[in-house]
Design a protein around this nucleic acid. Sequence first.
RNA 1: GGAGGCGUAGCUCAGCCGGUUAGAGCGUUCGGUUCACAUCCGAAAGGUCGAGGGUUCGAGUCCCCCCGUCUCCACCA
Length: 903
Amino acid sequence: MKSIENMPKTYDPAGSEDRIYQNWLDKGYFHAVVNPDKKPFTIVIPPPNITGQLHMGHALDNTLQDSIIRFKRMQGYETLWLPGTDHASIATEAKIVDKMAQEGLKKEDVTREQFLERAWAWRKEYGGRIVNQLKKLGSSCDWERERFTMDEGLSKAVTEVFVRLYEKGLIYKGERITNWCPRCNTSISDIEVIYEEQDGHFWYINYPFADGSGSLMIATTRPETLLGDVAVAVNPEDEKYKDLVGKELILPLVGRRIPVIADDYVELGFGTGAVKITPAHDPNDFNVGARHNLEVIQIMDSRGVINENGGKYCGMDRFEARKQIVKDLEAEGLLVKVEPYKHNVGTCQRCGTTVEPFVSSQWYVKMKPLAEPAIKAVRDGKTRFIPQRFENIYFNWMENIQDWCISRQLWWGHRIPAYYCADCGKIIVAREKPAKCPDCGCETLEQDPDTLDTWFSSALWPFSTLGWPENTPELKYFYPTNVLVTGYDIIFFWVARMIFSGVEQMGEVPFRHVLIHGLVRDEQGRKMSKSLGNGIDPLEVIKDYGTDALRYSLISGNSPGNDQRFLTSKVEFARNFGNKIWNATRFVLMNFDDGVDFSNVDRADFTAEDKWILSLQNRLIKEVTDNMERYELGVALTKVTDFIWDVFCDWYIELVKPRLFDPENKSRLACMYVLNRVLVNSMKLLHPFMPFITEEIYQNLIKDAESIMISKWPEADDSLIDEAAEKELGLVIESIKSIRNIRTQMNVPNSVKTTVIFVTGSENFALIDESKGALKRLGFAQEIVTAEDESEAPGDSATAIIPGAKIFIPLRELIDVEKETARLTKELENIEYELKRVGGKLANEGFISKAPQRLIDQEREKLAKYEELRKSTAERLEKVKSMKELRKSTAERLEKVKSMKNN
RNA sequence: GGAGGCGUAGCUCAGCCGGUUAGAGCGUUCGGUUCACAUCCGAAAGGUCGAGGGUUCGAGUCCCCCCGUCUCCACCA
């Protein structure tokens, strides 16, 4: 074992990670195949946008997935983590438009084909960037199966689904009011609208009656829409306005005669009770208009510019028009007042522009029939959310779902497979462009110019990536996938849509579990955002601390569904932990004999501490495996860390040193064996989280090792669970802690070695004897003495009384009687408190009759233990007190002698 | 308007199905250069688990209500 030569004092991630990752790639460990001999375990990646740059959200999401997939791989599943990217129609199109703007070009300056050429070129150049960044994270994706939402196969899936839904009557085209972004110049779906509270105004405007009998006052937050008003509505129950219904008003600035109508939609007591109705530019007004058969007058174009219906305001931007209209109303004396008003304004998720409700012809998916079975599937537990509370969010949305607007006035994306006959106008939805119109035989057919919402293709991701609509072996084997890992922010956008698509197209949910995580915030708890400039680049963190440290910091100390703050102190801790295990390994290797051979280790040579740590590690394996299976990664990682640092490094290694350094010791080989075994297993348990350093250590530790990532996940061996050993070592550790505590309190420097006297039952003699080396080392003792009776201990000893032993440390003049008294008094108080608590419990009739026997026995045992401790501690305290008196009187005598002399 | 999260040590957070003396990291105080590691080791201080009520033999954990805080959904011109 000369590996130690490769191991400097501190672990250097930069020197290892790329090399290790390349090796994994070369060996093909990430690749999954259809293997009937193994059970599959599948995750499909949430495909990042090709415009994406790795951010902390990706880092968290992918670290979770990689940790799960590595765990399952080691458990022996045929694991597929299927990666890929999303074409992100609107985001990418915006990038291309921006880039063209730099050349002084507008989108309209090029043809659709030229534009798409640019887009594909852009994709080729930048689309792989995020993939390489995912690799830096250590992601063990099957890169041979990488997919892109606009690949040929996936596009075919999109067309297939569109056609099927259309044929089932679940996709229709309709002229409706939709959310529209004037900047992106496209329709957007309801969930792409972000409502923001903004400071606005309430403008109160008088609409004069046509008969000259005064006027009716309305209030609006968007005065420019006045141009499209076709009525004013009041509530039919409104006494104030009852007589006005049916009368006509003159629309200010426009002069159009519009009726006063009655509609329930108007809320009594809000505003003036009279509402202007603009069907073309407000969704509620659109519905009112439909009920009353009102005209729909569009006054703006798709860019938010007032059109010819706006008369003299034609050509003005909507906000410019707003100002001018207010000014003109004021001039005409029709503006009554202006009030400041806070209200919610819909903005475009992509660009932040105020959304404009806009009437246009769009394609919709009829949602109710799709939602129902998807709701049922989750109700029936076919898919479970972790944590479960997110199911409520899913249900709430799905139960109140509106039809989904899927057409976009964009070029980059999947083009809608609908064709229009130039002659008769028939709409033909088909997988391939038909040769001629089936109705009129006309051969001029135009394909719909629009593309589909990006999420339409993402919704098919779990099966389109596996080859659907072909019935591939992959699809059969890997579908449904096991777990989907994603943030709560895209449950509606993506998770819900995958579920109803999977249920509809495959007849089976796309995944069994949905593991939801929260956001990674900055140190102050703010959302990381470009505008705040508070984002932390994961690649920078990797550069400074290593990938494993980053991954560790993202997983540890947080639980599913909760947001977390990104703390540099946490990354530092993780880096330190890496270094700790690195050095533990160095220590182990340093002390191994050359060519050490464990094949003839005799279990009979195992000492108490060997049995103890093997027992604890086997408990750990059970717990961690259980936590991993329940996706409690944070808990699992904490447990592994505590075990490695506290149990293995701080106790086991320290306890074992006397044996290891003594070439004559007969259990030396056993100890090397245990060191090796425990360390290797620990690295395996840690590997899903810290893949690189564990691989590096594994390679150093095991000669000719292939790779930790394909090694077998440790299995617990119940025969190694040893309660007696745990109890014994518990006593040793408690003893050492007590000794250290006393020494610190009494300010005894480490250089001063003391004698330690154990008064303990004979059953522990052998144990103390066996542990002498460790006790001496760790308790800074010169010698360890066992005694039958405490009378053998000198009076001027500090004492620790613990269950199973009384420990005396003769300190002579070093002893501080005051402190010792205080310490023992506090000890006694604690014991009394516990006695009261336990005693009370056992005196409780209800506890005795209803609590499980196991607990009652435990409490009884405790009571006996504390009673014993109280007796011993009280006795000891009395002795120390009398010692104090003695000292005091001695001091007084001395004083006396002195003063006599002076006289 | 509806739904949900969070409130546990100075800070950031764990704490599953209710059951040892409620934990960790950072920070703080004190002490440590013997050959794995100062990216370290040892010792310690620090919490009536937001308030109140209830269920229970037993509540940080379950229920109700209130306070504070954050988020999501809906959206009233």
